[in-house]
């Protein structure tokens, strides 16, 4: 039996934005959960003075899998969402095709850590606005402005509960990853 080439996509975003739902909608296996080590950036809210700047903590992580063809398996890893802590997702993001940053249009602030992280990592990502109630009260342009996302980062709306909708968001991401490989983005240094 030949061993498949494994690829992975990171499903990121704040707490409760629909990461697990997204993975469950499209995974061909029931989503699995395991514990992974994360680098935790100490919050100033806690007793940061007594702690080093960063330390490793263990958090639960959900993931699913898709068989792309005979030789390619695609894994979807949902990064744990935390409100007050910033996690460094190096373990999950290392070698990834890219990331889907899921956004709840009512709580834009929650996705800032993910957007910042993937911009710093220079990893292709797509901002996917989860339409909980089926419509968007703000336009995508105003969300882009509010998040201060670079113009080359695609933004899509989707429904995390809908398989085809999740598929389309992943297609937007892989499409972007291909363009990035073919034409690396030259980022402006301010």
């Amino acid at each position: 039996m030949s061993t498949p080439v494994p690829l992975k996509i990171v499903i990121a975003g704040g707490f409760g934005v629909g990461k697990t739902t997204t993975v469950a909608s499209i995974s061909e296996i029931d989503p699995l959960s395991t514990e992974a080590e994360m680098t935790e950036v100490s919050s100033t809210v806690d007793d940061a003075a007594l702690l080093p700047d960063k330390h490793t903590t263990t958090v639960a992580m959900d993931f699913g899998c898709l068989t792309i063809d005979q030789n390619i398996k695609l894994y979807l890893f949902g990064t744990p969402g935390q409100d007050r802590f910033g996690f460094l997702w190096d373990d999950i993001a290392f070698g990834a095709v890219g990331a889907l940053v899921i956004v709840d249009p009512r709580r834009l602030d929650d996705c800032f850590p993910a957007v910042d992280y993937f911009e710093d990592m220079d990893l292709p990502f797509v901002v996917a606005v989860n339409l909980f109630d089926g419509r968007l009260t703000h336009g995508l342009d105003s969300i882009r402005w509010a998040l201060d996302v670079d113009p080359h980062v695609p933004m899509v709306t989707f429904d995390a509960r809908d398989r085809v909708s999740v598929r389309d968001a992943l297609i937007a991401l892989v499409d972007n990853a291909i363009r990035r490989v073919q034409q690396p983005v030259t980022r402006l240094v301010h």
Partner: peptide
Amino acid sequence: ASRDPQILERVLRGL
């Protein structure tokens, strides 16, 4: 593999 355009095209077709 995640930076290989041919593999990424296959992922696109699979999706």
